[in-house]
Write a protein that binds this DNA or RNA. Sequence first.
DNA 1: TAGCCAGGGTCACCATTCGTGACCAGGCAC
DNA 2: GTGCCTGGTCACGAATGGTGACCCTGGCTA
Lengths: 128, 128
Amino acid sequence: MSLGNGKMTRRYDDDCVATREILSLVGDKWSVMVIVNLGEGTMRFSDLKRAIEGISQRMLTLTLRGLERDGLVTRTVFPTIPPRVDYALTRLGQTLLEPVTGLAVWAQRHRPEIQRAREAFQRAATSK
Amino acid sequence: MSLGNGKMTRRYDDDCVATREILSLVGDKWSVMVIVNLGEGTMRFSDLKRAIEGISQRMLTLTLRGLERDGLVTRTVFPTIPPRVDYALTRLGQTLLEPVTGLAVWAQRHRPEIQRAREAFQRAATSK
DNA sequence: TAGCCAGGGTCACCATTCGTGACCAGGCAC
DNA sequence: GTGCCTGGTCACGAATGGTGACCCTGGCTA
């Protein structure tokens, strides 16, 4: 892909697949939400579950495992009763915070436009 | 979420779901690849298919339909034989180019780190 | 003493989506 | 006539996303 110096050149063949793989990691909606939330600081499992409205326990577990595997978050277990597990961004995770936040800002800013486009598309499809 | 002025405040409850929905649109790997490719200019269906190595016709069609529906790309049909269909970013799509490119750059830059983290995680898991 | 809750998971099971390969139309070259 | 090119669509299996139930252990309440 060779991004970085203005225009992109055509070097997809090998990078493309790898980059896509990494983007798919970030791409899933839950990962983004977890990262944004952890951007504020360490959180416990149940804090995250409450903060990320709509996520199920299983999905949160899976998402966190994936992020841990990729070195984006750390998982600290306190073997108390009831158990307590803290999650936090690693340094690598924090570097991701910036581009991800950029996307989130974009999403918020352009939400109305997208909604309008969808409605227009819907109308065009039904009238057809 | 109230991103935008430095620190985030706790306003997830209503925004969160909507933002997540929009992110999931951008989040899927194919959409990102299409947007990045169209950032260079108008492309035909089969150009895209060739450029985005690994995508199937069906997935490309679905992805493009989704992006068109959300007002991010335009679809122009030339009823020639053989048929010809051009795709291009809308103005809205171009505004998305910047944050998405940011992500792509991040992915490329940190790919080795992630790979290393994965290998370390793998080793930790197998030795356990 | 029986119930019930919290916290962090896992498991079985369904629904949705992903992805592959086949097929289509219509004219052109061989 | 056979096959190819383009931009799709359709049917079908594979993978993934998501839900609700259950687990464990200790403390609190009734």
